[in-house]
């Protein structure tokens, strides 16, 4: 899998684009098992997504009144955050290779959650 990062200004268009791309991606994946996935990411898939995912977990727990004790906090682990990221539309595979272009040797806000063991060149 190869990932690219792009940035957009319009929040609304971004939200719509993200949903549309996801739906198209799922359809294509079903019809062509030998496909290669091309994913376009934006600034909102980075830290913002983690904040949204955390908020989603809190909302669900508040609804189910599960924040009554210390034990409830223990359910907040990596799998829960992964699932929440998926729901907010920003979960993705961890790329094996990240290519950085230009004079800056930084990943410029690429979703950090996925960069755990990614090779960066």
């Amino acid at each position: 899998m190869v990932s690219f990062t792009s940035f957009t200004e319009e929040e609304k268009d971004k939200a719509i684009s993200i949903n549309s791309v996801q739906e198209v991606n799922e359809v294509v994946a079903l019809h062509d098992p030998d496909h290669m996935t091309l994913k376009f990411l934006s600034h909102a898939d980075g830290r913002e997504a983690v904040a949204k995912a955390a908020n989603l977990i809190f909302v669900e727990n508040m609804k189910q009144h599960k924040l009554g004790g210390e034990l409830d906090l223990q359910i907040l682990l990596e799998p829960q955050l992964n699932k929440a990221l998926q729901i907010v539309g920003s979960k993705g595979p961890e790329p094996g290779l990240l290519l950085v272009y230009g004079p800056v040797r930084s990943h410029l806000g690429f979703p950090a959650w996925r960069l755990r063991y990614t090779e960066i060149m």
Binding site: V50, A51, A54, I57, F58, L67, L73, L76, E78, L81
Partner: peptide, 24 residues
């Protein structure tokens, strides 16, 4: 990141923080 989210969750539970205020 996970332990930070736990800390935020505890503050929400203790009413030191509102859900709408959660951001980066």
């Amino acid at each position: 990141v996970v332990q930070a989210c736990k800390s935020v969750a505890k503050k929400v539970k203790d009413d030191h923080l509102h859900l709408d205020d959660i951001n980066e």
